[in-house]
């Protein structure tokens, strides 16, 4: 067991280092010059001021030292929780910008990932056995899973937001409120959350339902299922075995899908004007904001790694074969 997790942790650490390095490299090798952007925006009109201001901003952004040193500084700062100053939102520190946005993104991502996976698997499993469900859920799921997040988001905003007027279409909470710990404010937050959540939930739900349905059918036709039935085991028991077996590939699928769902959340946030990381990324890219971009990607990389690790742990818990294999390996 220790060896298994040791190896996993080592791989994750390695992935983290590589990801952080790439994350540092990519913006720097993008064409463009963030300091020039600063100078343009602050409309430095006096030619004599250009050189000193350039020097000033390069120092603030830590661009005044050789590349290798920038890289080392980057790591050093990272461990102190310092991700530099945003170019686009100068002079706000990147950490502040991200901590303001992360709660919104997490509040969208976690429930939509977990609930869609859970609900998708349940419904998929049911669909595999009921003709009427199969005929309704399956086509609906195909449509949903093939819908781009953005498109579904626009449809929802238009139908439930603009036409039906049930939900607000923009913002993290009403524009006439200030955050407080009151029931009214929490209800307001929830009302603004529901549409972006739904568009993420529905798309992912479709995918999981289809996957589970196919897996269950496959499992029910496996030898062990026929054998159990031949022995006279109750159908309920057979189904439960099939479900548990089918769950495993779905878990692996969840690990693989995380990145896609995160990307979907970013697009969805833009559609709903939701104050998460989505619009930050978009603007960071167009404004050559190295530091914000690095910070946001770092957060995403960390999140995906942690989630994957959690799935690894869960895998060990739900699949006795992994446990047995590990015990065999360590013996």
């Amino acid at each position: 067991m220790r060896r298994y997790f040791g190896r996993k942790l080592f791989i994750y650490a390695l992935t983290f280092i590589v990801a952080v390095t790439i994350n540092w490299m990519v913006p720097r090798f993008m064409p463009g010059d963030p300091v020039l952007r600063m100078l343009t925006r602050t409309s430095v009109s006096n030619p004599d001021a250009i050189a000193p201001m350039r020097a000033y901003y390069e120092k603030v952004f830590g661009l005044d030292v050789p590349l290798w040193k920038q890289y080392l500084n980057y790591w050093a700062e990272l461990f102190q929780g310092n991700m530099g100053v945003s170019v686009w939102l100068f002079p706000t520190p990147v950490t502040d910008v991200i901590t303001g946005a992360v709660p919104y993104t997490l509040a969208l991502l976690l429930p939509s990932i977990l609930l869609s996976w859970w609900a998708g698997n349940k419904v998929g499993a049911l669909a595999a056995r009921r003709k009427w469900l199969d005929n309704s859920v399956l086509p609906a799921s195909y449509v949903l899973t093939a819908t781009p997040y953005m498109w579904l988001g626009i449809l929802l905003a238009w139908s439930l937001g603009l036409v039906a007027g049930l939900f607000p279409i923009a913002g993290g909470y009403s524009f006439d409120r200030q955050p407080t710990w009151s029931a009214a404010f929490l209800a307001d937050l929830l009302a603004h959350w529901i549409l972006p959540f739904l568009s993420l939930f529905l798309v992912a739900f479709g995918g999981w339902a289809i996957g589970m349905r196919n897996l269950i059918i496959y499992e029910l036709e496996a030898d062990y299922a026929s054998y159990l039935e031949a022995l006279g085991a109750p159908r309920r028991l057979v189904r439960r075995y099939a479900f548990r077996n089918a769950l495993l590939p779905q878990l692996t699928g969840l690990a693989l899908q995380l990145g896609v769902i995160v990307a979907g959340a970013l697009v969805t946030e833009i559609v709903f004007g939701y104050p998460g990381l989505g619009s930050l990324i978009l603007n960071a890219i167009t404004n050559q904001d190295y530091f914000l971009l690095q910070g946001v990607f770092l957060f995403i990389v960390l999140g995906v790694l942690i989630a994957n690790f959690a799935i690894d742990v869960v895998y060990v818990l739900v699949d006795p074969r992994t446990r047995i294999g590990m015990q065999g390996g360590s013996a």
Binding site: L166, F167, D176, Q178, A187, A191, W193
Partner: peptide, 30 residues
């Protein structure tokens, strides 16, 4: 779904009358 859809309806009815002190901005003064 029901809780969520009920919220904004309740909210719309409540906001014009909401007191300014509650951290909200009265619609006709904003």
């Amino acid at each position: 779904l029901l809780t969520a859809s009920a919220c904004p309806a309740k909210d719309d009815a409540a906001s014009p009358a909401a007191p300014a002190g509650a951290g909200q901005y009265p619609r006709n003064e904003t």
